[in-house]
Every structure is written in C-alpha cells, then in structure tokens.
Design a protein around this nucleic acid. Structure first.
Length: 352
DNA sequence: AACACGTGGTC
DNA sequence: TGACCAAGTGT
C-alpha cells in the first residue's frame, strides 16, 4: 500500500528530526500518558496563522507567562492583550483570541471542546486551526491544510492547477493520506517538511523522505509548484500622523476602532490614508514637520506617512485621542507602523 | 468569491 | 530592493 509507506516514511523522519518548540513535546521526549495542553496548542496555532515560527516564539512565551491558562486570558483587559500582541500583525487574531477565550470559559466551562465541528464554531478558529487542535491536542484524525500542506501535496502529486483554484483537490489528496494513528504527529510532520525541506524556493529534495515518491521531482518541476495566480500590484497611499507630547510627558494617542486596519490597537491621531494626505491636527498647537517619513508596506498597499510633532504646554482638550500618562505608555504596545512613527520623531527630537 | 488584513525575513 | 512568502480567518 503506497499510502501507508508514505506515512511510515514521514513519521520516521519526524521521529528523528522533529525540532523542539515551546508548544510542542517531541515524540522522543514524550513521557507515557503525557498529553498536550489544548490552551497552548490553540494559542500557538493562532499565532502561527500566516506567521513564521521565529516571529512567534517570544510572543508565545510572553503570553503563556502572563496568562498561563484560558481562564486567566479570558479575564484579561482588552488593551493588555492588544498591547502584548503589538508587532505580531493581523490584529483581528488578538481580538478573536479574547472572544474565543471568553466563549470557552462561558460556554464550555473553561475547557476547549474536543471535536472539529465544535472548535470550528469558535471565533478565530477556521478549518485549519480546528483540524490542528483536534489532531495535535485530541489525537483525532482530522486533516490540516495550510500553505505547507498545499505545497507538499502539489509537488508530491504534481498538481499543476494554480492556487487558490487547486485548494479543493489538494485538500482531498491530503485527506487521503491522513492516518488513523498518530494524526497529530503526522500533521506536524507534513508541515515541518514543508517548512524545512519542501520549501517554496530551492527545496532540499536530496534529504527529503518523500523524494523517491514525489511526482514533481520525477518530472523536474518541483520548484515551479504550486503555481499561483498572480497578485494585484499594491498602490501607494499617503497620510499624516500627529504626535503631541504634553508638558508632563504624556503622549496623545487614540484607540482605533475594532473594525478595519489595525483595529483595536493604539495609534497616533491623523488623517485617513488615501491618494492624498490631508492635514487634520487633533489639537490646536504649534506643529512642526518631522523631516522624515514612515515607509511601511501592508498586505495590500504601501504607506507613506508624514509626521508632525508638537509640544503641548497648555492643558486643553484634544479633538481626538487622549493623553496617555508616561507610566502607562509602552512603545512596545504600538503596532509596528505606529512604532516607526514614534522612533523617527524621537530621533528628530534628540537632534535638537 | 474575492478581498481585507501586518510584519519581518529572504533572495 | 522590491516582490515574494509564512502553521488563515472573517466577511
């Protein structure tokens, strides 16, 4: 049976080479009866959505130190969780993380549900994450299909249909290979293979446990798969941000609305971002132009953000935002684009 | 169904 | 150096 041979090959490879991760107990180190903590699996899987392992590590450690279980996270302040997530991106994940933690506490007694379908109903848990938690935390034979699995399946079977159209076919192929035994290790093994050997560019076929099974490699087209439909070019948008510092060191910041870009995060008041930047100061002051602009690229546009700075000596009410006292302001609570604005402004102030 | 949604690393 | 890419989800 070819499928069982494939499973054997990749699980052997995983048993020998699985890397230690903060959220993972590798098979070699797993003691009898030891089971994964669904909270840690869930948290790591949400952080890993569209995000590299290297970027996640420190965030995972900070989150689990500060909130060691789902009950403590559910009880956290929104702003604290958003601040701890700052810099990791895709901030809807953090908002849904809190919603999910609170749903687990309020609707499931503080215990994660242990079926794919029940997991899928929770905020921020889609088909991938539901399958990952079900297989890794609960040892259920569900099929994870992420970017790695898509790439590995496309090459193994030489599927030349471009993504995303090929997704249903690749999902079927992945399902056909999912084993009844050790489904969690198998899921992680395929993803690890994609992340470390069957990489997007110049895959390391020479050390791949599936090299002799791989149809794309036999055809010599492995590096060209999976094919993808080309993406649209990113437009350039322009904006102005206003950084005001009060006499006592407090900075004028605003909490962005929950929907849309950087939703729920702290940010500097400013104009909308569009084809042209409009001056829209949040408080009457003697605004200075910071002689540097933030350049930042989001998923679907480039941003050029002009910066204005003002000392605010009088205690007048801002039109938008609130002064955040110095002892409550951590620059690390800012999303990266806002952090860049802060750093450039600080540099400008220190030159004077 | 296509688009919105972040960021940092890589070549 | 700019485009591509990463363990996707919500709308």
């Amino acid at each position: 049976m070819r499928d069982s041979q494939l499973r054997q090959e990749i699980l052997d490879w995983y048993d020998r080479f699985a890397r230690e991760m903060p959220w993972r107990i590798a098979p070699a180190d797993r003691k009898a009866g030891q089971v994964p903590d669904p909270y840690r699996i869930w948290l790591s899987e949400v952080m890993l959505q569209q995000t590299t392992v290297a970027a996640v590590r420190d965030y995972f450690h900070r989150f689990t130190t500060r909130w060691p279980n789902v009950r403590s996270l559910a009880a956290a302040e929104d702003g604290d969780v958003m601040g701890e997530w700052a810099g990791l991106g895709y901030y809807a994940r953090a908002r849904n993380l809190l919603k999910c933690a609170r749903a687990v506490v309020e609707q499931h007694g503080g215990t994660f549900p242990d079926t794919y379908d029940a997991l899928l109903t929770l905020p921020g848990i889609g088909p991938y994450t539901a399958a990952a938690i079900a297989s890794i935390a609960f040892d259920l034979p569900e099929t994870v299909v992420d970017g790695n699995v898509e790439r590995v399946m496309a090459r193994l079977h030489a599927i030349e249909t471009p993504l995303p159209a090929a997704k249903p076919e690749l999902t079927k192929l992945a399902q056909a290979l999912t084993p009844e035994t050790r489904p969690g290790d198998y899921a992680q093994a395929v993803m690890d293979l994609g992340a470390t050997i069957c990489t997007p560019k110049s895959p390391a076929c020479g050390i791949c446990p599936w090299s002799t099974d791989c149809v794309a490699r036999a055809k010599g087209i492995q590096a060209e798969l999976p094919k993808k439909t080309p993406k649209n070019p990113k437009p350039i948008r322009y904006g102005v941000a206003f950084l005001a510092k009060r006499y006592d060191g407090a900075w004028l910041l605003e909490r962005r609305p929950d929907k849309g870009l950087l939703g729920g995060m702290l940010g500097w008041p400013g104009s909308d971002w569009g084809d042209v930047a409009t001056e829209a100061p949040p408080i009457a002051a003697n605004w200075q132009t910071v002689p540097a602009e933030v350049r930042h690229t989001f998923t679907h546009f480039h941003l050029r953000l002009a910066l204005r700075y003002a000392d605010v000596s009088q205690d007048c009410r801002p039109i938008s935002g609130n002064f955040l006292p110095l002892d409550k302001f951590r620059p690390s609570d800012l999303p990266t684009v806002m952090r860049k604005a802060f750093d450039l402004t600080q540099g400008f102030l220190q030159e004077d």
